[in-house]
């Protein structure tokens, strides 16, 4: 067994240690990932990730398909709990607490982290009910609070003008781009600290994509945003910091401008200039 693993390791590509550029965390990191490893069954998907995520900034995760971006993102709000046979070592600190500590309240944690998925996934309810869903499951029944939250969240996701006259209509009647903004509204309705976005624009047309990017720009500062993207231009446009991942490893992490213009590692420069990936 060990011998097999060892041989595999010999054949595997060699990696230098992660190249770090300075990432400002003046108020302390919003998320602090420490020596994080993850296995799906026998297969290791994340290797020794060490990463501090800046509060109030947009951090982009880039890298070729299958490099573990989604896996890492889904660890941040423990969405990976749904997967059977998952092994984890290391820590992810949020507000001074390890979210993988036994006995942590996962539901409370998820309420502090909004998540937006690759494909818009509104529920088969009215627009209004979709937006206030996080509050409803939290037990909020006060009509005034719900109304206010709905308006605030929809304004926050730049959907208010389009949706304010049809709040009672089914969310499934919205266009794809509107649905995705509705999902963002839903994610920010409970006023989370962190917003996790997994390729939020990959199912959208360019105009809807532009709108979402604009929105991300407005939301930064209010929320710490971690966004997975395949699109290098998008990463460059919306993020302050960028992490480049490859084969489950964090290759290079730093200020977006530096990563794109002055990367330390050859793999990073190859990827960002489009030579592979």
């Amino acid at each position: 067994m060990n011998a097999v693993l060892a041989r595999k390791k010999d054949q595997a590509p060699q990696f230098e240690p992660t190249a770090y550029h300075i990432v400002e965390t003046p108020e302390g990191a919003a998320l602090d990932i420490q020596k994080f490893n993850l296995w799906y069954g026998e297969a290791q998907a994340l290797f020794d990730i060490d990463m501090k995520i800046q509060k109030g900034a947009v951090t982009a995760l880039i890298g070729p398909s299958g490099c573990g971006k989604s896996t890492l993102l889904r660890c941040l709000n423990r969405m990976n709990d749904l997967v059977d046979d998952l092994t984890i070592t290391g820590k992810i600190m949020v507000g001074g607490e390890d979210i993988y500590r036994t006995g942590i309240d996962v539901i409370a944690l998820r309420k502090r982290m909004g998540m937006v998925f690759q494909k818009p996934n509104p529920f088969a309810m009215s627009i209004y009910d979709n937006v206030v869903y996080p509050l409803r499951v939290d037990g909020v029944t006060n009509r005034k609070v719900l109304d206010e939250t709905c308006e605030r969240a929809l304004k926050g996701s730049a959907l208010w003008d389009e949706a304010k006259d049809r709040l009672k209509e089914s969310a499934l009647g919205l266009s794809g781009g509107q649905q995705q903004r509705l999902c963002i509204a839903r994610a920010i309705a409970s006023d989370p600290e962190v917003l996790l976005m997994d390729e939020p624009c990959s199912a959208l047309d360019p105009i809807a994509t532009a709108k979402i990017e604009e929105l991300i720009d407005e939301l930064k500062g209010h929320y710490t945003i971690v966004i997975v993207t395949h699109n290098m231009q998008q990463a460059a446009r919306v993020s302050q910091n960028t992490a480049f991942m490859y084969l489950g490893r964090l290759i290079e992490y730093g200020n977006t401008e530096t990563i794109f213009q002055n990367p330390k590692q050859k793999r990073t420069s190859d990827y960002v200039t489009g030579r592979f990936g």
Binding site: N77, M79, L82, I107, A108, R110, K111, M113, G114, M115, F117, K119, N121, P122, F123, A124, Y133, P134, R136, V137, D138, C183, R186, A187, S190
Partner: peptide
């Protein structure tokens, strides 16, 4: 994706089943 959407909102498993899975 529906279940995940609901769980990510901080819904419990039962709430997810009750409000999202069962109606669907």
């Amino acid at each position: 994706s529906m279940r995940e959407g609901s769980l990510a909102c901080g819904a419990s498993k039962w709430q997810t089943i009750r409000y999202v899975v069962l109606p669907r």
